[in-house]
């Protein structure tokens, strides 16, 4: 099948790739653009570790056709830190031991960022709801919940009002 060109913004930079019309966004990110932040877990939308933000909305990159992202703005976990400065969520994940094997971490961080972007003052139930689509095998979830709540507390006060 003929390849089609796809252009979108990836973590603030204009990027372009040639993709098979049936390629998922995850395939293009990992194989075409060398962004290995989002992981390939189940490949069928049930584990959440490929989660990315497309125009601010939480999406599963393994179930999103790359060609449908033309002109979109995509954020992955790779763009979360500001240079050497980690995002408050990343710092909180480290401080609360919210990762063990780390395979779910990109999706957890992305789902958590989507939550804090729309609700800077979440309740425990809001956090549980936000990560309900992400499977973790190691941590028992509790350290992840604690890390996200802690990150929310470090956000500037005006964002939480």
């Amino acid at each position: 099948m003929a390849k089609v060109p796809v252009q979108f913004r990836l973590n603030g930079s204009d990027r372009a790739a040639f993709a098979d019309p049936a390629d998922s966004l995850l395939t293009v990110l990992r194989r075409g653009l060398n962004d290995f932040g989002p992981k390939y877990g189940c490949g069928q939308g049930t584990c959440g570790t490929c989660s990315v933000l497309i125009d601010g909305g939480l999406r599963l990159a393994c179930l999103t056709l790359a060609a449908s992202c033309e002109g979109a703005s995509i954020e992955t976990v790779s763009g979360m830190a500001d240079g050497p400065n980690l995002h408050p969520l990343q710092t909180a994940f480290m401080e609360h031991f919210a990762a063990q094997c780390g395979f779910c971490t990109p999706g957890m961080l992305t789902a958590a960022k989507a939550l804090l972007d729309r609700n800077p003052n979440p309740s425990r139930e809001d956090v549980i709801d936000a990560i309900a689509g992400n499977i973790c095998r190691c941590t028992g979830y509790e350290p992840i919940i604690q890390a996200i709540l802690a990150a929310a507390r470090t956000l500037p006060a005006q964002r939480r009002s």
Binding site: T46, I135, G140
Partner: peptide, 17 residues
């Protein structure tokens, strides 16, 4: 056949420990 059918507790099913 997949993680929808292979049951595991999620973050909403945690017990105080």
């Amino acid at each position: 056949r997949d993680f929808n059918e292979y049951l595991m507790p999620g973050p909403g099913d945690l017990a105080p420990y």
